[in-house]
């Protein structure tokens, strides 16, 4: 039963392609390597952890291209950081 479930959960090649592209395009768009991005991520988490307890597992820090035409076409850093509690 578990085996069968696992078979259906196999990551499709389309999802692999999408994931690869997402990482690839981030570095293409701003000339920033995935390594640099991961360093930014660690530093952001470190800085915020000084003040609040955060849920590192569910922290999301990603670079996105702003698709809206007009004023802001630059890539933007989005951070989604769930706070567990605030240090007093």
């Amino acid at each position: 039963m578990i085996k069968k479930f696992y078979f259906f959960k196999r990551k499709s090649s389309k999802d692999i392609a999408k994931d690869r592209l997402k990482i690839l395009l981030i570095s293409d768009r701003i000339n920033c390597s995935p390594k640099t991005l991961s360093m930014i991520k660690t530093d952001v988490i470190k800085a915020i952890s000084k003040y609040v307890n955060i849920d590192e597992q569910h922290t999301e820090i990603v670079l996105k291209k702003n698709n809206k035409r007009g004023n802001n076409k630059r890539p933007t850093l989005y951070a989604n950081i769930p706070i567990l509690d605030i240090h007093e």
Partner: peptide, 19 residues
């Protein structure tokens, strides 16, 4: 291939390229 999940669908590609 799209139905089998072995090729990116038009929606996937539009999501990525944003046009």
């Amino acid at each position: 291939l799209v139905k089998r999940g072995e090729m990116m669908s038009p929606t996937d590609v539009v999501d990525i390229l944003g046009i």
